[in-house]
Design a binder for these strands. Structure first.
Lengths: 411, 411
DNA sequence: AATTAGTATGTTGTGGCAACCAACTAAGCA
DNA sequence: TGCTTAGTTGGTTGCCACAACATACTAATT
C-alpha cells in the first residue's frame, strides 16, 4: 500500500510505449495504423511511440504489406537483435546458463552438475565462471547484454535482488545482485523458478494470450506459478504457489509427505511416486522391457527411462503414468475450482511424460471439478519442458524491458 | 488483453485523484502536506487535487492541527455526506436493502423473506419496492443517491450489469442494470456476494490495510472472495473462489457433497454439518441445554441456537463447533499454502460462532500448513458478520467512486 | 478518383519546480 | 508583560516541459 500509486507524464509515456511494445510482441507483424486501431491510441501518437521504440532498437521495420487498396503499410516486429540476455537456472544438482537473443532464442547454453547444498561458495563461483563464458560469447557476436535473470527454487526479494530462502539448497539471504555486480554494468534480476517458468509461458509459450493461468512444476515436489489478472501473484511474503500440499481423496498407495502431513497430492503425483509405482510392479515381475532398458543403459529407474518404456509399449509404465495422472487430475480439479483459470500448464521433469499423463489428468478433472467451471479450462504441456525455468530467467529480463522500454538506451 | 491498456492525461488526473482519495479514506484525518509526503506527489499537485475533491463534495475540511511548530495544518476527511448509497443483497430466502452514507454507515435498512427460486418476477418486484422505500427515505433526508449495488450468490457480468448464473436461485441471465433502470438516474452495480463481502472488508473492515487476503463465506456451502495483489480475482469466467470443494483428510463423519464428490471440506465445516454433529449427540441424550432451548424458543436446531447453548456452557455444542473448526482449519491450511495470504477473514452465518471456531481453526492450521508460510497469517472474523455481503453491495459503489472520483459531479 | 498509411503542426491539459505568501512557535529583550 | 525577530511548516502561484490529441496535410497504392 506504500509505493508509487501515482502517475505523471513520464508514466503515461512509459505505459504507452510498453503497451505498443507488448502488442507488437504478441501480435507481430503489425503496421502503425493497425497499432492505432488495436491500442486505441491516436495515429500521431503511435507514430511518435514507434519512432522511439525504433530508436531504442527494440523493434524494426520488416517489409511492406501491399494487400488491399491504398498506401501499403510498413510492418513492424520485435528486433531479435535488440540485445542479448543471459538466463541462469540454479537447481538442486545443476547450474544452467543460456545466452539468448531478445526473442528468447538460445544462442549458446551450458549445463553443469553442481552441489549447492554442500558448497555455496563453490557453486557461486562455478556460476560466475559460466556467466563469464556467456558474456565472452556475447562479446564475440558483438551485441550488448541487456540483463541477467536468475531462476531459483526459493523465495526472493525482487527489488533488492536477494534470495531469501531456498529450502532445497539450504541457502539463506544470498545477495545475488550484489554478487553479480562484479560483472560490471549487468542488470540482475532474480525470480522463483516456478514463477519464472510462468513468465516464460506468458511471453514466449503456451500462455501468450492468457492472463489467468497456472504453471504447475512437477518434479521432486509440485509447485506452482500463479499468473492472475495479467500478473504474477506472489503472496504476502513471496511464498504463494505451494499447491502440492492439498490433500486428495487418495488411493491406498501412499508416502508420507515431507511437510509432515498425509495425503498431499504431490506425494501421489511427483517424480518419486511414479518410480515407486513402477518399482512395485517390477517386483511382481510384470515388465520385461524396463529391466532390459536399465541394464542396456546401465542407469537406475528414472522418469525418462519409464517414459522410454512407455514409448515401447510397456503397459506397466503406461499404467503407472495413468495412475499418477489421475492423482494429478484431482489436484488440478481443486485448482480449477479455486481459480477458474484459463489454462493449466504442466511443466518440470514430469512433463516429458505429458502425453501419458494428460489423458488421465483430463479424465479425472472432468470427474472432480465443478462442471460450470472446468468446461473452459485448457490443460496443456509446457512449451519449454525441462528448460521452462531457464527460459523463464531470460523472460524475467525481457518482461522488465517490455514493461519499461526506456530501460534500453537510445542509440 | 483487449481493453484500455493505454494512458493519457485524463487518466493521470483520475489516477492521482483516486490515490489521494484512497489515502484519505484509509488514513484520515490528513493534511495536504502529509498527503504530499505519503503519495510522493508535489505539494502544488496535491493542492489542486484536493481542491477538486472538495468541489466534488467527496472530502471536507474538519479542523486544524496545531500540534508542533509552524503553521497549523487543515485536516481533511472523507465527507460522509458525499451522497447516499443503496445496497441490496439477494439471498436464497431473503432480500435485504440498506441505505447508507458515503462511509457505509447504515441509515435505514429492511430485510424481508423471499422465495427467488420459485418466483423470479415476484422477487424482483419485491426488491424494487424495497429500493423505492430506500429512495424515498433518502429523498426525505435531502441527499443524492450516488449508486446502487447488488450482491448476489452467482456469477456476474460487471460491465453489462447482468447476473449470468445463480445456481441456488436457479436464475439465468437476469439483466439487473436494465431492470433497475426504471429508477431513473441510478447507477447500478452487480457483484458476487462473496466478492462484495471481500470489498467491504477491504474498504471498511478487517482488511483496510491488506492487499492479499481471502474472505471465506461459510453458510450452506463454503465460498471465497479472493483479494490478491490489491484487487479482486474473479477468474477467467467469473467462477473463481469455489474453495470449499477441495478434499481434506477427513474424520469418519461424512456427507456426500452436492458437487458429486466425497471429502470436500465444505461438507465437514458448513452449517448443516454442525447441525448434524449436534443432532447425533442429541440422539445419545448427551445434552440437556439444547432440547430445553428448542422447546423454549419453539425453533428447530439452528446454528444460532447451538451458539446460544455454547454460550450457556453446553459442552456438546462447544465440541461440535470445535470439530467443524478443525475441518475448516484443514481447508484454511490448503488456502494458506496456495495463497500465502496476509489474512483469512471468516464470514457468513457461521461467523456468529466464530469465537468457538477460531481456536480449533488456528490449532489445525498450525498443524497442517507449511511453517514458513502460516506464521504470518492472521485468521479473523468478518467485521460485518451476517451483513458482510449487504455492506459489500454498498462497498462496490464506494469502490467505484474511490477509483473514479470524477464519477461524482462538481457542485 | 478513391482509399489507406503515415506525418507535421498547433492545442489542451497534466504534474513538477521554485519562489512565494501565510500562520504559527520559540526565544530574546526591554 | 509586550514587542520583535528568527525559524518552521502549510499551502498557493506562475511558469515550464512534455504528454496525447485533432486536424490538416503528404505519400503511395488500386
Amino acid at each position: 500500500m506504500t509505493s508509487k500509486n501515482t502517475a505523471d507524464q513520464a508514466f503515461v509515456r512509459e505505459k504507452n510505449l510498453s503497451s505498443v511494445l507488448r502488442v507488437i510482441h504478441t501480435e507481430a507483424p503489425l503496421s502503425r495504423s493497425q497499432l492505432a486501431v488495436v491500442t486505441g491510441l491516436n495515429k500521431s501518437t503511435i507514430s511518435s511511440l514507434v519512432e522511439e521504440l525504433l530508436s531504442r532498437g527494440l523493434i524494426h521495420e520488416t517489409g511492406m504489406n501491399s494487400a488491399g487498396m491504398g498506401r501499403p503499410s510498413t510492418l513492424l516486429e520485435i528486433n531479435p537483435q535488440a540485445g542479448h540476455i543471459i538466463g541462469v537456472e540454479l537447481g538442486v544438482d545443476f547450474v544452467s546458463v543460456a545466452l539468448t537473443d531478445f526473442l528468447g532464442k538460445i544462442l549458446w547454453r551450458r549445463t553443469e552438475g553442481a552441489d549447492p547444498a554442500e558448497a555455496q561458495d563453490k557453486t557461486i563461483s562455478q556460476t560466475l565462471a559460466l556467466v563469464n563464458e556467456a558474456l565472452a560469447t556475447s562479446r564475440q557476436q558483438g551485441d550488448f547484454v541487456l540483463g541477467l535473470g536468475l531462476a531459483i527454487p526459493g523465495t526472493v526479494d525482487l527489488k533488492e535482488g536477494v534470495l531469501i530462502f531456498a529450502p532445497n539448497l539450504h541457502w539463506h539471504n544470498v545477495p545475488f545482485r550484489k554478487i553479480f555486480s562484479v560483472l560490471a554494468g549487468l542488470k540482475v534480476f532474480i525470480e522463483n523458478d516456478a514463477n519464472a517458468a510462468a513468465i516464460a509461458e506468458h511471453l514466449f509459450g503456451e500462455a501468450r494470450h492468457s492472463d489467468d493461468f497456472i504453471f504447475v512444476f512437477a518434479g521432486v515436489g509440485i509447485g506452482g506459478g500463479l499468473f492472475l489478472n495479467g500478473q504474477l501473484y506472489r503472496g504476502n511474503d513471496g511464498y504463494a504457489g505451494e499447491i502440492g500440499h492439498s490433500p486428495i481423496m487418495a488411493e491406498p498407495f501412499q508416502n508420507p509427505c515431507h511437510c509432515g502431513n498425509r495425503g498431499c497430492w504431490e506425494t501421489y503425483a511427483n517424480q518419486n511416486s511414479i518410480v515407486q509405482r513402477v518399482q512395485a510392479r517390477l517386483e511382481m515381475q510384470r515388465s520385461d522391457i524396463i529391466p532390459k532398458l536399465m541394464t542396456e543403459q546401465n542407469t537406475p529407474l528414472t522418469i525418462s527411462l519409464i517414459k522410454q518404456a512407455a514409448d515401447l509399449g510397456d503397459q506397466e509404465a503406461i499404467d503407472s503414468f495413468a495412475e499418477a495422472g489421475s492423482a494429478m487430475g484431482q489436484g488440478f480439479a481443486s485448482l480449477i475450482n479455486i481459480f477458474n483459470p484459463e489454462k493449466i500448464i504442466l511443466g518440470g521433469p514430469l512433463s516429458c511424460a505429458g502425453n501419458y499423463l494428460l489423458p488421465s489428468i483430463n479424465e479425472t478433472v472432468n470427474k472432480h471439478s465443478l462442471p460450470e467451471i472446468d468446461q473452459h479450462v485448457d490443460i496443456c504441456l509446457s512449451t519449454f519442458g525441462q528448460d521452462a525455468s531457464l527460459i523463464g530467467a531470460v523472460a524475467v529480463v525481457v518482461d522488465d524491458i517490455l514493461s519499461n522500454p526506456t530501460h534500453v538506451e537510445r542509440r
